[in-house]
Design a protein around this nucleic acid. Structure first.
Lengths: 193, 193
DNA sequence: CGAAAATTTGACATGACTCAACTGGAGTGG
DNA sequence: CCACTCCAGTTGAGTCATGTCAAATTTTCG
């Protein structure tokens, strides 16, 4: 499907826009194609765009002081991704955003998005609802991280990301789950046996 | 300070409302006083209100299948708290909300809030921005949980909640940090020595 | 095909948990 | 106002989950 169509459909699930509004939205979002391993945002850069994944798969991650990578989540088609803190505060990003598979992303500059917010009440509402949904998802993830064992978290991950599990290398899943690749390997072999 | 004043001030940090809008907002929010240990919401109930803490301190937590309590965060004056998933989906709450100290909370019913959203564009914007900020805070917490040791997380907690640390019993801090009370006790005694 | 990257395996180390006993302070009722 | 109870916090011994490191194996991809 066309990237802009995917965007309108995503928005349409929450609010209704007039044709003129839809046109204004489409004009403000610009598509970017990413090849596997390409960066959309690197820690240290400024994040001046909101980003909608039309297709493909990206990861949002941070590298800690010890050099370990921690993946916050995998974004798929239909997800919005960003280092939101860096975007909101206009400070250098502390997270990076990188393509895991070839992807198409729609980006809107802060300037254009703020204009849309002023012109279209429903855009404020859409982003409110989207952010609320994202908040809920993150809260669930946090709770699971705190209350489940590594083995349970992996089982849960497989369920949750059933369709993408194949495309994501195992060491990234380990990073997402907060365990070492070795330990995840051990968990898997134990469960297969 | 008056609870409604605290609310208007909180909103005013993000958006401007006319006097009429401010009046409409104040009328829609109803204050509740809570004594220490009183529940504002219990798992299983429906959450039909958005809640603003005017003063005091509450905890948002979930009890897992094994009966262990996991505290997601401590809410203080100026925070908004809820089981957002339960609110948004109108399903029974899986989290509970309980006062740690005597508190005053302003509540608005879903019905009234939705009306405000329709009448006042800036209310959509305010909640968008508030939710974004909450999302960012939660993301930070998640990253810290994944990348820091229990000892580091405790040090970080003390810094972050400096003013409230005294009022929160240690076993709740342990629950927030995701460690057992015994282990937190060991960490503290090690650091004091 | 060959090199680099990802995964597996195993030995060992350690952080955090469990359980049980003990201490000390904050109510509470006689 | 004392004795008692209850709850939070501490301590320590033993255990378990997960991490570290190193090497072997498999897969990917130029």
């Amino acid at each position: 499907m066309d990237a802009h169509q995917a965007l309108l459909q995503n928005i349409g699930k929450y609010v209704s826009l007039t044709q003129a509004e839809q046109d204004a939205v489409c004009q403000a979002f610009h598509p970017t194609e990413l090849k596997k391993k390409e960066y959309l945002l690197e820690a240290g850069e400024y994040s001046n765009h909101m980003r909608f994944i039309a297709s493909g798969c990206l990861k949002l991650f941070r590298v800690d002081d010890a050099g370990n990578e921690h993946i916050l989540f995998f974004g798929m088609g239909g997800w919005w991704v960003n280092d939101l803190y860096a975007y909101l505060t206009e400070t250098p990003a502390t997270y990076s955003l990188q393509a895991i598979t070839n992807s198409v992303v729609l980006q809107i500059h802060r300037h254009d998005l703020d204009r849309l917010f002023d012109e279209i009440h429903m855009m404020d509402r859409f982003f409110r609802m989207k952010t609320q949904k994202g908040y809920v998802a993150l809260q669930e993830r946090t709770t699971r991280t705190m209350s489940l064992s590594a083995e349970q978290r992996y089982a849960d991950f497989v369920k949750r990301y059933r369709d993408m599990e194949q495309q994501i290398p195992q060491y990234m899943i380990a990073s997402y789950l907060g365990v070492t690749p070795e330990h995840l390997s051990a968990i898997r072999s134990k469960n297969t046996r």
